[in-house]
Amino acid sequence: MKIAVQADPFDLGVELAGFGAGRADVGAVVSFTGIVRDDTGAMDALELEHYPGMTERAIAKIVEQAVERWSLADVIVIHRHGRLGIGEQIMMVATAARHRAAAFEAAEFLMDYLKSRAPFWKKEHGPEGTSWVAAKDADEDALKRW
């Protein structure tokens, strides 16, 4: 189990090397990586603010739920904060389970909850100034399916 909230970049290859390996009860590993994109063509960078202490605590609770519900063998959640350029990795989630359906579902559950229950706030930096990214109703609705 690994939960990390960090400013530094992470190496997906290093994180996934050996993840879920060497265990007879792991038949599936799923990983998701979030990357900074620019929808408007007018963004220079994305800044992520978070609530140190609560962030780790909130992620741990979400991970605990996923582990219990899908009987996960292992989980990785890494979420970055600070100023990130377009194309940089923001975060990653990996799940290891007995079967692929559980690994996929648990990864989606983790993503849906991290989006609206972990205390991070995105701010876009562009030539015209900065603006806070507003939460979408769709993100809140996404939680209802769980």
Binding site: M54, R117, A118, F120, A135
Partner: peptide
Amino acid sequence: QDLAEFDAPIEGVREVAFFPPMTGG
């Protein structure tokens, strides 16, 4: 450091945080 409602009591609470809806992920 736990999400709460605005009608929640604050007796014994050490830390109260206010913020907009979260936009992580």
